[in-house]
Simulated assay, not measured.
Amino acid sequence: MRIVSTIIFLLALVPSLSHGHAWLKLRIATTEYAPYTSTDLQHDGYINHIITDALLETGVEVEYVAMPWEKALEATLAGEFDALSYGNFIRSREDEFFHSKPISAESLIFYVNSKYENRQWSELSDIADLKMGITEGYLYNDELATFVKNNKNVVKRATDKENLEALVNGDIDIFPIDELTGWYLLEREFTDAERDEVARITPFISTVTTHLLVPKGKPDSQLILSLFNKGIEELTLEGKLTRFKRLLKEGYYQHPQKKVNYDRR
């Protein structure tokens, strides 16, 4: 009860604190996952821009530290960081992390080698014969995680780019990835001829929501979660989440030398 009372008291002070100097600074682990998060992008990427502004609404500053995904998970759980940016909603992760209110919602899709572009599927079992590539350490959604666990026809690679290269070369047949990341990588890193070797099949797998991950069991976890959720609510009311998505599609966050216009899909 004392913790809950403290949170309520601090949140009551937030409107006045957010317009002055920061009263709290958080260290958040992040990864190189453009265009959502990357030290090579404006504001450390689209998602981190939202997180920063949401916490500023409550008078909180953020320092991001970039590292590989698996290391970011371990370090955050070990108490080295206050939170992790970012993760899709995965039920199996709820034992260790709180999921914040959603930051964004994205479509999870399948890319296939072009020889399978007319492949039909309605259940994941329909594609069990295809050699699937997945990115090491990533959890896509609960249904796909279960499928991958029980399917021996799955190979892991370190990055999404490596999986797309394997798809182009025919080393794998199918690869799940969120729509924006897939488009971004194909347009930025591959030639027209290479892109011709890849096709998207329908339907999309699911809609996934993205979240700030706050480790459970830490003294300030509930406070951090409450502050962030309040900030996201404020950004939503102010229409800023729509504005950030528009900036993303216009290429604002990307490196100026290799921009990808997402709206040209």
Results as ranks from 00 to 15, higher is better:
S92E: 14
K71I: 10
I172T: 03
L108V: 04
D171Q: 14
D53V: 00
L24P: 01
R2M: 11
L130W: 04
E197P: 00
S107I: 00
E250H: 05
E106G: 07
D126S: 04
P219Y: 01
Y46A: 05
A145H: 12
L167F: 01
G239V: 06
E143M: 10
V148Y: 03
T242G: 08
N48S: 12
I51Q: 04
L213T: 07
T209C: 07
D44V: 08
R243L: 14
S226Q: 03
E74I: 14
Y64P: 12
S92N: 08
K115R: 15
A193M: 09
E117M: 11
H211G: 09
V154K: 08
E70Q: 15
E189R: 12
I201Y: 02
F190R: 08
Y140K: 01
Y36M: 11
L124V: 04
I90H: 05
I103M: 10
Y184G: 05
D192E: 14
P203N: 06
K245C: 01
G251L: 03
S206C: 08
L55A: 06
I134V: 15
D192K: 13
A72H: 01
Y111D: 05
P176K: 02
L55N: 00
I127V: 09
I172G: 04
I50F: 07
L17S: 04
K25V: 10
S5K: 15
N229R: 09
S206L: 01
K259C: 03
G59C: 02
S16V: 13
Q222S: 13
I50V: 14
V60T: 11
K115I: 11
K245Y: 13
K156L: 12
H43I: 06
G59I: 02
L144S: 02
L56S: 12
E179F: 13
N141A: 05
A12V: 07
V4T: 13
N113E: 05
S5W: 07
S85Y: 02
S38A: 12
P203E: 00
G45P: 03
Y253K: 03
L225F: 08
V155Y: 06
G217Y: 03
T181N: 09
F147M: 07
M132N: 00
R157Q: 12
T236N: 09
E61R: 10
R243D: 14
